[in-house]
Write a protein that binds this DNA or RNA. Structure first.
Lengths: 245, 245
DNA sequence: TATAAATCTTGACCTGTATCAAGGCCGGCT
DNA sequence: AGCCGGCCTTGATACAGGTCAAGATTTATA
């Protein structure tokens, strides 16, 4: 995964985020860039590290530059459910909230571009387009969350795994259809956490998809799909190819 | 359920929405009210009616005044998952989008306060506080959706049913703890759709909760819980009593 | 009020996924 | 290189929730 401009500065042609950024106001883009530049801080974590625990103070917002971050909610008895998988250009945090409502951790080696909340919120007041894009992004996230609810509530284990692979392949590789290859950014455990399954079930379904010729694995982390349409079919997806962001 | 001001006009003391509206700008509230007043339309549906099918053009936004609306996504083979349950004061629709990404239907007799999209979006540009509240609301919705993902992915059938009852009881009745009573606004089928279960499983778990003394049923639609704490326990909820909006 | 049509409940049985357990693969460390 | 420890895969078994089916209760209609 290569480095991208963080979300709020992304241009419409940003390869990492084909869905999220529709247009950028030509008039004020330069200003935004300059102002954001002044208050940003980069920070990195190693794969597996926890960035914030549920309830921790969270005095920043930011976006993923490289790598992959996870948002996880835990029930008291230890059961846990991932509720967000943040890829490059995805936004993290919420203006107006100072406490993390879930655990944030690094799925892979991770770099975040962070803005302290106070100056960011000030900027939010001054530059209306940042707020507009934040609204756009939140609504996209909401759509994605709802799409994921369908997966969690109604899809079979096989469909769940296929859907996640499809998501990763669609985000990582350029072609709309045909052969697609990608590095799986997450462990089997993280996949299970995201899909509402156990590790064993994920593993079994990966094996089945491989046996059925829907996917190919090289090592544990490299997946490819000779035919994305076939994978989409296994994912039980609407034929219109609705995208899950 | 009594009538409330629709969401965007809600005051901080609005009984229906204790969570969503933190503050209203005193300076511009009057103006907003006047401007919104000019472009709003009320419309009602009977319980069970479909308001919009997935993919229908949606040239309005609005909020629930009375009753209860459902957002449902369907897979091609007929499986369906409810992805939103809108109660009085909840917002429906998305500025900038003209097509419904899910089916919208009336769970009970329903009245919406609607604004045609074009003038609403114009207002959005002119009155910044409306946009701010829309962002707040979207972020709250996102939190709620994520909380629901935990339910769908990790909770048992009993916990799921208890969580939904708790949600309804918390929204309908005033006391923080102690006895709570409410009308279930939705059928068993809708409950099943929301919880990612079958009707039969919902029914069985309702019976079990009743047998265990956690809830009481009068007729099919009136529930009460002698002890909300006990219900929260059955819901597998964090002890801090985190609210699902 | 009687009857019909929904909606809900309960039971018997089955299946998909979780659980428990053993072994294999791979990367890191000495 | 060889060993160790963390992932991952595979198998055997158990159980929660789904499916199918019958009946009960409620609501709508005549």
């Amino acid at each position: 995964m290569t480095a991208f401009s963080p979300n709020l500065m992304a241009r419409p042609d940003c390869a990492a985020c084909p869905i999220r950024h529709r247009a950028v106001c030509a008039r004020c883009e330069a200003d935004e860039l300059a102002q954001l530049e002044k208050i940003k801080i980069y920070r990195s974590w190693k794969a597996g590290e926890t960035i914030l625990f549920d309830g921790d103070p969270m005095d920043f917002v930011g976006s993923v530059v490289t790598g992959c971050a996870m948002l996880t909610r835990r029930l008291e008895d230890g059961r846990s459910q991932m509720v967000g998988l943040l890829m490059p250009s995805d936004f993290l945090g919420r203006p107006g909230r100072s406490t993390a409502p879930y655990e944030v951790s690094a799925a892979t080696d991770l770099t975040l571009c962070m803005f302290r909340r106070a100056p960011f919120e000030k900027l939010l007041v001054e530059v209306p387009h940042i707020r507009d894009r934040l609204l756009e992004m939140s609504l996209d996230e909401l759509d994605a969350a709802r799409e994921w609810m369908v997966l969690l509530g109604r899809k079979t284990a096989r469909e769940k795994v296929a859907t996640l692979l499809l998501l990763v392949l669609r985000r990582s590789s350029l072609p709309i259809s045909g052969v697609a290859r990608a590095d799986l950014p997450i462990t089997r455990e993280a996949m299970a956490s995201y899909l509402g399954l156990t590790i064993e079930t994920v593993s079994r379904q990966m094996s089945r998809l491989r046996a059925d010729g829907v996917i190919t694995l090289e090592g544990l982390r490299k997946v490819s799909a000779p035919d994305l349409e076939a994978l989409a079919l296994a994912a039980g997806e609407d034929s219109d190819g609705a995208t899950i962001a």
